[in-house]
Design a protein around this nucleic acid. Structure first.
Length: 495
DNA sequence: CGAATAATTTTTAGAAATTATTCGGTGCTCTAAT
């Protein structure tokens, strides 16, 4: 018996007469929309694919949840870059009473996966990674669905990761075509003109697109750059009197560990490092303790941050410069989500940017080396497989399954290299400029700077704002610990 | 490319100075051996 047939849900267009606001109140219990939400939703309801650039914390998930309930035209597929993000969204939706939600990823056991796939048309919201969705077998199930909305969350990943780190992001174009070009929503917090171009090219090739764009300006963040010989010393002084949570970003895992240990031995509160070498369990635990103010300061690499929902992060320090202004804005923007005065500090030493040139050159070489296989037959390529790096295998696979093939690969190869170099130079400009840093960020994102702020950046006013006014509740046991007690405490927390 | 560490030499019997070496970011998924 075909169970699929019996359980098939008919996604018939049901439009309510209610105003959007009334529906928002009734279904989501919010009294008003955040900026950008309504516009995005209106576009989607009109059947127009949309790129929405909304600042973090502006409620991006409402943008795809709302249309699903308001106008039931089909299922919603959400492409998400991280398993942890998917799981967060799923549990949030379940908490709000939505039962037909699922995340398809490697956490799903083989048997449950089989079950889920067999009744895929039951789910209102389906979360999936680009890697899973690229698999022909999985995609074939999605072809049978009635997709009302295709969402790409954190869409800047297309531009940032698609070309080297996670080539599956480049497959989304083909995937959309195979799903008969569903209505699409791309969501991100930051997008430079170049990133937008990438998103348009990889996601919106054939359709008309609306754009909803909110300012990148974060009025409550003070921007500062300090050039110092002794970063550790400066950092210690800076942190000494801070009674508020913060993140320190590093461009190497070892450094993050080293400085974390060093600070822990000197500061009267818990500091912890966070990077990709840690087990998943540790990462989840540390994240939770940070969110609950058990750990006050995190020493992290770029692995930390995406999807983090903590309002009271008061400062973000960059111990090393990031590799682009865009990443800098993403990372520093994690400060002050609650709207209260916060601070971004970059500790810059000329030469710090070299690691990024190095890493960039390394991946470029690896990509360049792959061109050797361009004119080889498929059989010949197999013989070289063992000599290839994992990345190269992925790139080759992407080339072979994409319409654009080698030509597309070659075209973007040098273009991307040039772009990334410019990104690093732009970041150096930010560090070295004597003009307003806030204005520079806005211009970089193609925005007009609106008005001068009283609390702006170190080039506009020299007074560091007070970010200490709302100290986190002193946890008795964390206050003034000896290093021995600290070790015990950390052991207790399972770090 | 450059910072941190390891290894060697220099200087004088443990330690300082010089030179050589190593390492460097982001995540998904699947598979095979315990």
């Amino acid at each position: 018996m075909n169970l699929n047939f019996i359980n098939f849900i008919c996604w018939k267009k049901v439009t309510t007469n209610m105003t959007l606001e009334a529906f928002l109140e009734k279904t989501f219990h919010f009294t008003r929309f955040h900026e950008g939400q309504k516009e995005t939703i209106e576009n989607l309801l009109r059947g127009k694919s949309t790129l929405s650039i909304l600042p973090t914390g502006a409620g991006k998930s409402l943008c795809y949840q709302f249309p699903s309930y308001y106008q039931q035209t089909g299922q919603t597929v959400i492409v998400s870059p991280l398993i942890s993000l998917m799981e967060d969204q799923v549990s949030l939706l379940r908490k709000n009473g939505e039962k037909s939600v699922v995340a398809i990823n490697s956490l799903l056991e083989k048997r449950s996966k089989k079950y889920v796939m067999s009744r895929l048309n039951h789910y209102r919201f389906i979360f999936i990674s680009p890697e899973s969705l690229s698999q022909p077998e999985i995609l074939s199930y999605f072809k049978e669905l009635q997709i009302g909305l295709f969402v790409v969350d954190e869409a800047h990943c297309i531009s940032q990761w698609g070309h080297d780190f996670r080539p599956s992001y480049l497959a989304l174009k083909e995937i959309k075509a195979q799903l008969s070009h569903p209505l699409t929503l791309a969501l991100t917090a930051t997008a430079t003109p170049e990133v937008k171009e990438d998103i348009y090219h990889q996601l919106f090739d054939v359709e008309e697109v609306a754009e909803v764009c909110q300012s990148v300006n974060r009025e409550n963040i003070y921007y500062e750059v300090v050039e110092t010989e002794d970063k550790l010393d400066y950092l210690e002084t800076f942190l000494q009197d801070k009674k508020v949570p913060g993140i320190i970003y590093f461009s190497s895992k070892k450094e993050a560990d080293r400085v974390s240990d060093w600070l822990n031995a000197r500061l009267p509160y818990l500091v912890q490092s966070y990077h990709a070498d840690m087990s998943n369990d540790d990462r989840i635990r540390i994240q939770e303790q940070f969110i609950h103010d058990d750990i006050r300061v995190l020493c992290a690499t770029s692995a930390f941050g995406m999807g983090i929902n903590k309002g009271n992060i008061r400062f973000v320090v960059h111990y090393h410069v990031p590799n682009s202004l865009e990443n800098f804005v993403q990372e520093s923007g994690r400060a002050g989500r609650d709207g209260k005065q916060s601070l971004s500090l970059v500790l810059y030493q000329p030469g710090d940017e070299q690691i990024h040139f190095f890493l960039q050159e390394q991946t470029y070489q690896e990509k360049q080396d792959l061109l050797f296989l361009e004119n080889k037959s498929a059989v010949d390529r197999q013989t070289f497989l063992s000599a290839m790096t994992d990345s190269q295998k992925k790139w080759l696979n992407q080339i072979e399954t994409s319409q654009e093939g080698w030509n597309g690969y070659k075209q973007t190869l040098t273009k991307k290299k040039r772009q990334q170099e410019l990104n690093i130079f732009k970041m150096m400009d930010y560090c070295q400029t004597s003009a307003c840093r806030r204005e520079m960020i806005q211009h970089y994102f193609n925005e007009q700077s609106i008005k001068k702020q009283t609390i702006c950046c170190d080039n506009c006013c020299h007074e560091q704002p007070d970010i200490n006014s709302e100290p986190v509740e002193e946890k008795q046991q964390n206050n003034q610990l000896t290093s021995q007690e600290k070790l015990e405490k950390m052991f207790f927390l399972g770090i």
